[in-house]
Amino acid sequence: MGMKTEEKLIIKGKRIDGRKPDEIREIEMKVGVIPNANGSAQVRFGNTIAIAGVYGPRPLYPKHLQKSDTGILQCRYNMAPFSVDERISPGPSRRSTEITKVTRLALEPALFLEEYPETVVDVYIEILQADGSTRVTGINAASLALADAGVPMRDLVVALSGGKIDDTMIIDLCGKEDNYSEADMPVAFLPRRKEITLLQMDGMLTSEEVKHIIKMILKAGEKIYEKQKEVLRKKYKE
């Protein structure tokens, strides 16, 4: 945000990569990609690639972090140094710390952790390639990894970004759109009852536009949900 461009991001209803405003990029999903993890998944939306690994439920140390009546969820969102044009120094940044927090809050409501007191479920998300909407791609991967790991869930978690470019409301922002958009809004939700677990926004929108974009996301998210279900079932087919 804050960057302005002379270039038009939408010409005759088509975005810079040829998509329609309510069209998602090409999606690729795989589970069981990390043999050492209890569960794992790799998800690609266009050129954004995220890989998630789940370890647990497992013992939680230090002991004072343990909760006697429930397990806890720990998350880490991290961008690989080579994931962007200008190399990122390894290690947590303020941005990745905030994304780690909102990712955890996006996934936690989906899990039944009361059945695993004193334990921890660790979810690690690595962004291997960044081309916009990395946190939602990470959440989609984490949701698959958690199901793959056999952590009990009330529903899968679906995540998608929305926004506004050249006065047009869109979903699934790629990197360039992310940089020049008038607004960027990542959302995550539990699809069965359309309950929202992540909602952030920066930019400039009327409250009507906010609501319209959320509705676009809830609708388009169905496609992501179908893909997630398909890839989980596929793991057990030959």
């Binding site: 209890n38 569960g39 647990g56 439920p57 497992r58 039944f112 695993y116 199901a147 793959d148 790991a149 056999g150 952590v151 009990p152 869930m153 009330r154 069965r192 009852r193 989980l232 057990y236």
Partner: peptide, 28 residues
């Protein structure tokens, strides 16, 4: 149970009968 429906918690095999249960295909 939610909204009057019995729902699976896991990726697994359902067993229908008097008790409806799901055997997880993975998990600790």
């Amino acid at each position: 149970i939610e909204d009057g429906k019995i729902i699976s918690k896991f990726l697994g095999i359902p067993k229908m009968g008097e008790y409806i249960s799901v055997i997880p295909l993975s998990g600790v």
